[in-house]
Computed example of a mutant assay.
Amino acid sequence: MIPPVRRLAAVALSALLALGVTSLGGPVAAASASARTSSWVYSVTLAKTAADVQKVAETWKPDRLKKADSYSPATPGSQSSTSAGATTVPSPELTPAKATKIPLSVSPELPSKGSAARTMGKVFFRFGDKEYWCSASSIAAKNRSVVATAAHCAYDARQAKPADSWIFVPNPGPNGETPDGIYVGAAISMHEHWPGRGDYDYDYAFVTVHRGFIWVSKGGKLVMQDVGRLQDIVGGQGLAVAKGVGSHVTTFGYPAGPQPDGTRPFDGRKLLSCAGSTRWTVAPSLDLQYGVQIQPCNFTAGASGGPWLIDYQAGQGLGSLNGINSLTWNRDAKDGYDAVSSPNFTAATGEVYRHAAAVTTPANVT
């Protein structure tokens, strides 16, 4: 019989592996790695042409989106202080290697119409024949078409393959509604250490998306109707890197998975938040050397990829992205998760973002 603490560790490990056990494939041709614009950036093409977008769109018609709550909330797993050798590191002197370029700062942007942004939402994707989802947010960019999420919500580092049929739905309704459109992923931009090593210090991705659309009925058939570029419709969060720890952060997500004791306090239909000051943390078993953590926060699976915002203004719904939900933690190995962590956003994160913000997409996909 497995002792209680070791049983918790086994549950965490099985959750970590669950995301990558299914082979990948689907309606879009296999993604290909593009040339890197720097030694840090690894880009993977998802849907390149209007025809590719339409193939993905066919996967996510309203009848399938209505079943969204039955899909699996993706998660890389969780950590407990006993099972993963996790410790809190108080030293402010930790500096990840290669964080040498001038830090990037991007201002948040309101949508073209309206006085408040609506940037948070869910990403839906497939691994093989199974659907998954995560949390995500729109980020201000010169191409007005960038989504930030966790890298494990876009690319399976264990099998070195991207997710298939990837879309972003801001502000999804409880019955599959897409009031602000559906945005098909065009390309994933990541730090090379995620696809290369599965290093959780780099579990973030910036996904460039195509113009959005909604499904409308015309002549008894469903057709795609263009709604425009993502940032024009919902706005975009800013970006702040190289901030270290000690900042007050508000983190958002759509938690849905069970707590360690088997209870399910969340259903994934509501956008929830946690807030607190950041501190360093590490998880050697996941190669996390420079993690940033806030506690308390009882997020579960489904919150992965949700934004960490500093200087968040609730009235406008805007702040500056300083992290994403990467790992949930059960630090005391008791009944519930009590913390969440993000990779540390460094100057290298800014380089990955710059690549995503420069990707161009077709002017019309409908």
Rank of each mutant, 00 (worst) to 15 (best):
Q316K: 12
L321K: 08
A314M: 06
L309W: 04
A314H: 12
T300L: 09
N298P: 11
T300Q: 08
A314W: 03
I324P: 04
R331E: 00
G305Y: 03
R331I: 01
Q316E: 14
T300A: 02
G317A: 07
S326C: 14
A301R: 03
T328G: 03
Y312W: 13
D332L: 07
N325I: 06
N298S: 15
S326H: 13
L321F: 10
D332N: 15
G317T: 04
Q313C: 12
G323D: 09
N330H: 12
G317M: 05
N322C: 15
G302N: 07
S326P: 11
N298H: 13
N330Y: 01
I310P: 06
D332Q: 15
A303E: 02
Q313R: 14
W329M: 01
S304R: 00
N298Q: 10
N330R: 03
I310E: 10
L327D: 04
R331C: 00
Q313L: 10
G319H: 02
L309C: 09
G319K: 04
I310Q: 11
S304G: 15
Y312V: 05
N325C: 11
N325V: 08
R331D: 02
L321T: 09
A303I: 01
F299W: 05
N298L: 13
S304K: 08
D311C: 13
S304H: 03
N330M: 07
A333V: 14
Y312C: 01
A314K: 04
N298A: 05
G306I: 00
G323Q: 09
N322F: 10
W308N: 08
D311Y: 05
S304V: 03
N330E: 09
L309T: 02
N330V: 03
T328N: 11
W329D: 03
G315A: 15
G317E: 04
N325E: 15
N325L: 13
A314Y: 05
A333H: 07
L327H: 08
W308C: 07
Q316T: 15
D311N: 14
Y312H: 07
G317Q: 05
Y312N: 05
F299L: 07
F299D: 00
G302A: 03
W329E: 09
G305S: 11
G323W: 15
S326N: 13
A333L: 06
F299E: 01
P307E: 07
S320K: 10
G319I: 01
W308Y: 14
N325D: 12
G306S: 09
G317W: 06
A333K: 05
D311E: 14
